[in-house]
Amino acid sequence: MKAKSARKPFRLTKKAFGVPYILFLLLFVVIPLVLILVNAFLDSDNNLTLANFKIFFTSSSSLTVLGNSLLVGVITTLICIIIGYPVAYILSKMSSGKILVLLYVIPMGVNFLIRTLATKAIFIAMDIELGMGTVIFGMVYNYLPFMIMPLHTTLSSIDKSYMEAAQDLGADKATVFFKTTLPLSVSGVISGVTMVFIPTISTYAISQLLSNGKIFLFGDSIQLSFEQGMYGVGSIMSIVMLVFVLISNFIMNRFNRQGNSVRRSLW
């Protein structure tokens, strides 16, 4: 076997096309992650230390900032669902829905920084005081398309015969919705939540711009640490952030599996 594999001629197989991406991943994902991990255990003179963990986990301010960020993330996600679900639902019912979805997606083509700056200018023109309210508005505004898109895809791909069957069997509109549409769209909700919650807990530019830096979220905190050359603490914060991303991914996956089983249990 060994001899055979060594003699195998080089062919431009599918695998070969994967090499550039693997290299890219190595250079820009794996190596930075390793650097973060290494930095987390080094002090400013490059000695091994655990002090960074102590600094982060014993300071009330960093935990407060983290708590604030998580809350903002939860609120943004909830508002996005509340606004996004009905929109996606209505759009999926309309024949021209696909074009209307485009209207939601097109603004995403404009760089989010420019959009946020424009939002800020509007708030200032309307004499609205910048603060927590404006930050949440900005977050919802920026991430709403990420909620509507997966929801619309899922909702419009649901087989209409389920709803028709439910109606035929005497369910009223609300019951049809709660018993068939909602359970069948759980996977869309889950991917929407993942796409909104995870970026919101790590944003920093939006909060900084829309509150003049008064609302200080976890992303801002990480940025400040790195800017001030506190690589150790900054790395720890990045790791904490990664852990939260992983946790939320894990929970979403769990839900998603349950969502799939709901689809099956419908029968």
Binding site: S59, S60, T64, N68, L71, V72, M132, I215, L224
Partner: peptide, 13 residues
């Protein structure tokens, strides 16, 4: 950082 993040978790949240 502490001064900028204010006192505790924002109650408005």
């Amino acid at each position: 950082q502490r001064a900028k993040s204010g006192k505790g978790i924002d109650t408005s949240l």
